[in-house]
Amino acid sequence: MDLGPHAGFIWASYGLCLLTVLGLIAWVRIDKAQQEKALKDLAARGISRARPAGEGKTSS
């Protein structure tokens, strides 16, 4: 593909956008993995969002 005398500017633009988008994708994926790992570690220590059995029930 011949993009003329300014091909370097065109490829640099597209390359930089590609790198930025890849960086954003990496950010959200790494962040998700970190948060899920933290939740898993807490659950392994017995700390989770699930209510302990009996909690919330009214005694009659």
Binding site: L24, I25, V28, R29, D31, K32, Q35, E36, A38, L39, L42, I47, S48, R49
Partner: peptide, 18 residues
């Protein structure tokens, strides 16, 4: 990306609360 980042932020706040 916004939906993915929002999901991560909700998870982060759950971690903080726990």
């Amino acid at each position: 990306l916004h939906l993915m980042a929002m999901r991560n932020e909700i998870l982060r706040r759950r971690v903080r609360a726990l």
